[in-house]
């Protein structure tokens, strides 16, 4: 597949920590507007891959391109975030001593400098945008509460809401339903499908039931490289995948 029409393009990426190859010759291409689920056992390199894309870790070798021709290995975390890549962490990380609304306010796309923040005045458009995001993540009635008081599932949604507010082109979502009830999981799947309508999304997940609900193309990672790729039925029928997940 060509690099030009891709939103995310990884080719021959490797990174090792103290001799341990966390990512080994990984290649992955995503089309703009695509939603992709990444599965794989613990230590398969899923989180390290996210770290490389978001600039937290620099690859030892290989190419990482965003939106066709932006070389991500040349940018740091805040630049990459401003280029339009949003990330949701495995453990929900919201700003707990701020209200739900303020969390969205801080994430809202706009200038990121200290002076802009110092003299910032909320506009009517911003206010409307915040309101619509709060509705979308079902937290409108808790806007004034401290994020620390939210349940685990609500924190996950708030973090997804913060991602939406950033208006990224590409969202990386790490285990969004870990520790959620079934009802919350379903709600989250709905939310992600809604988002995928307008943006590219990468979802890392363990929960096969949830991946099935998403109904998208699946990539299975193992020991730092791609083991299988395709629809969930295709991937889960693959013998090597079965061996990695069940056997050994």
């Amino acid at each position: 597949m060509s690099r030009q029409n891709s939103i995310l393009y990884l080719d021959g990426v490797s990174v090792s920590f103290d001799g341990f190859k966390a990512i080994n010759n990984l290649s992955l291409v995503m089309q703009a507007g695509e939603m992709r689920a990444i599965i794989g056992p613990n230590g398969a390199g899923k989180t390290t891959m996210m770290d490389i894309i978001t600039g937290k870790t620099r690859p030892d070798e290989g190419e990482v391109y965003f939106d066709g021709d932006i070389d991500l290995t040349r940018h740091d975390e805040s630049e990459i975030a401003q280029l339009g890549i949003g990330r949701k962490f495995q453990k929900p990380t919201v700003f707990e001593s701020h209200t739900v609304r303020d969390n969205i306010v801080m994430a809202l796309a706009g200038p990121r400098s200290a002076t802009a923040a110092l003299f910032h005045r909320e506009s009517a458009e911003e206010n409307a945008r915040i309101g619509s995001i709060l509705d979308q993540i079902r937290l409108a009635d808790r806007a004034g509460e401290f994020a620390a008081n939210l349940s685990h599932g609500q924190k996950q949604w708030l973090e997804i809401g913060m991602l939406l507010a950033q208006e990224p082109k590409l969202l990386l979502v790490d285990e969004p339903v870990a520790g959620m009830t079934d009802a919350e999981t379903e709600e989250t799947a709905r939310l992600l499908r809604e988002i995928a309508g307008t943006r590219s999304v990468v979802v890392v997940e363990h929960d096969m039931h949830f991946v099935r609900q998403l109904g998208v193309k699946v990539t299975c990672l193992h020991e730092g490289s791609v083991l299988a790729e395709g629809s969930l039925d295709h991937v889960s029928a693959d013998e090597r995948v079965i061996e990695v997940y069940l056997g050994r």
Binding site: E79, F95, H98, V105, A117, H120
Partner: peptide, 23 residues
Amino acid sequence: SKFGKLLVATRDAESRMRFLGYR
């Protein structure tokens, strides 16, 4: 101000701030 909120956010979760695009 919004800057003050960002200061508190930096205090509580500095790396999260980076992934929001702030420095």
